[in-house]
């Protein structure tokens, strides 16, 4: 699925590159805010929904091959985090909704 379509369907704001060519390879989703638990349990190609916005979510996402990060609850994201996401090519999206709502929408989309 194209990143732009994904973002539009879920009403997400794209914080990183908005290139039309960006394709997401997604297989499932994981919700979590404790990094060690996400490390151990999220699977590769997952969508990761979290309210953590610290720089370190990118290290975790990159290490376990997350496809896209969705920041829930309209949490504020620092430029450091956004720049790092751009640097490593990790799509970083933001939602006004809570993690449960986002997960429900993903489910409706067949993820």
């Amino acid at each position: 699925m194209k990143l732009l379509d994904f973002a539009e369907k879920l009403q997400l704001e794209i914080m990183t590159e908005k290139d039309e060519d960006i394709e997401l390879d997604i297989n499932g989703a994981y919700v979590g805010d404790l990094l060690s638990i996400v490390m151990g349990k999220a699977k590769e190609k997952n969508v990761w929904i979290t309210i953590q916005t610290h720089l370190n979510i990118l290290a975790v996402a990159e290490l376990i091959d997350i496809s896209v990060i969705i920041i829930a609850e309209d949490m504020e994201i620092s430029d450091d985090t956004i720049n790092k996401a751009k640097e490593i090519g990790m799509p970083l999206l933001k939602s006004k909704e809570d993690a449960y709502k986002i997960a429900c929408r993903l489910n409706e989309m067949g993820i």
Binding site: M39, G40, E44, H54, L55, N56, L58, A59, V60, E62, L63, I64, D65, D80
Partner: peptide, 30 residues
């Protein structure tokens, strides 16, 4: 904290280049 994960990320990249199995890379990274 600003560089936390850098070491693991570097090691992961090296293992990828060497063609190590993705499951092994993931476990090593964790």
């Amino acid at each position: 904290f600003s560089v936390a994960g850098k070491v693991s990320s570097d090691i992961k990249k090296d293992l990828k280049k060497l063609g190590i199995h993705p499951k092994i890379i993931r476990r090593t990274a964790i």
